[in-house]
Each structure stands twice: as structure tokens, then as C-alpha cells.
Simulated assay, not measured.
Amino acid sequence: MGIPADPLASGITVTIKYGKGYEQPWAVFHGTTEQVREDIATFFGMQPDDVAGLTLSDLVANATTAAQAVGALTSGLGATVVESRNSPPVQTRPAASRPPATDRSSAWEQATAERPQAEPAANPLLALIAQAPDVRSLERLWAENQDAFADPAVTAAWKVRGRSLTRAG
């Protein structure tokens, strides 16, 4: 009987950080390229149709942008992440390979009972910011949409994407 194979010896590992430094959370994905791809999409709640044409690198970039935006909003502005009623859970793997689902209905009922007002529509500028290919494009979005930057979520996402593009370039 030999030594068991190292599970990290084959496949790839992708780490997505929510911010700078070790005090910020991160998510680590390991496996084949396709497993990592599925895990990232599932972890970040991305729909299979939305990621089908993306390379793994592009998917990681989008997930990193999303993670850093969430990190900036929660730590910098004190925002809280809540479950969306409009997005069904992403199911990219067979049910047998997923952990059992937990019942979140009571948490959702409690959250909606505390805030009976209607949810605001998602700001379409956030998607444009996340998709900006370079700093120049971000600057153009800022110049053309000054009123939208009164929304702290837009400003935070814009700053996070700018930092991400600056580091990458």
C-alpha cells in the first residue's frame, strides 16, 4: 500500500480575495478547470448562460470584481447582503454532489418584515462598471453619469473596479 496521492497535485487552484490583506476573506477553488469554473459560478450565484462564453480568466476577473465590490460595501459602508427573491439558486452540479440546502425562509421573512418597503431596482450602471475594460472607460462612465454617483454603491463599485484595473494594468 503506497502513500495516498496528494489531492492538490492535479488540477488548478484559484483564490478570489474580497479585499487587500489577510484580514479580508477569500474563497479558494480547486479541481479541474471545469470543476473550478462550475464552483465559482455556483459560489457567486452566476447563471450558467451568463458565463458560458467566458474564459476561466474572464470568469475569475468578474468574480473578483463582484467579491471586492461586496467587500467594499459591507466593510466600508456597513451594507448587509440579503438573499434575492428574483434569482433562483444556480444548480450546475447534480444534487448528489452538493451539500444539503438550508432553510432560509425564516431569515428572509424576518428581514422583509423589518423592511416592508419595496426593493429598489438594481442600478444598471453597476453592470457597466463591472464590465469596464480599462480605466479610461471608467472615467468616461463617471463623466457621463455624475448623478448616479450620489449612490454610495455606485461609487464603491467604481473605486473597486478602478483599483482592480490599475493593479492589472
Rank of each mutant, 00 (worst) to 15 (best):
V82F: 03
S84L: 03
L73G: 10
T55M: 12
A66K: 12
A66D: 09
M46P: 01
T42I: 11
A66V: 07
F44W: 05
V82S: 00
G53K: 05
Q47H: 15
T65A: 15
A67D: 01
L73C: 13
E83Y: 02
A61P: 00
G71W: 05
N62M: 15
T74K: 13
D49N: 13
G76Y: 04
S84Y: 02
A67R: 03
A52Q: 14
A63R: 00
A61Y: 03
V60D: 00
G78R: 05
D50S: 15
A69T: 13
N86Y: 12
S57H: 11
V82M: 01
S57K: 12
A69P: 00
A79R: 08
R85A: 07
T64R: 06
A63M: 06
T42V: 13
G78Y: 08
V70W: 04
S75Y: 14
T74F: 10
V60I: 14
N86C: 03
T80N: 06
E83L: 07
P48G: 10
T64A: 12
V70A: 12
T65E: 09
T80G: 03
S75I: 11
F43Q: 04
G53R: 08
N86K: 11
F44M: 08
S75K: 13
V70Q: 07
D49S: 14
L59M: 10
T55D: 10
L59E: 05
L54W: 06
S84Q: 00
S84T: 05
T64M: 03
V81T: 09
A66W: 05
V70R: 09
D49E: 14
V82E: 01
A67E: 02
T55I: 09
L59C: 10
V81N: 00
F43G: 02
G76K: 01
T42K: 02
T80Q: 10
A66E: 08
G45H: 07
A66L: 14
V82A: 02
V60N: 00
V81S: 01
G45R: 09
S75R: 14
L56Y: 01
R85K: 06
P48E: 07
N86W: 09
T64Q: 08
Q47S: 14
V51S: 02
L73E: 09
V51K: 00
T64N: 02
M46Q: 13
S75W: 13
M46E: 12
L59H: 07
V70C: 07
S84E: 00
F43C: 12
D50P: 05
F44Q: 04
T42D: 04
G45V: 11
G71P: 01
P48I: 08
N86I: 08
A66Y: 10
S84G: 07
L77V: 07
S84H: 01
M46H: 14
A79Q: 06
Q47D: 14
G53P: 02
L77D: 06
A67P: 02
G78K: 05
D49G: 12
R85M: 03
A61R: 07
Q68M: 13
V70Y: 05
L77P: 03
F44L: 07
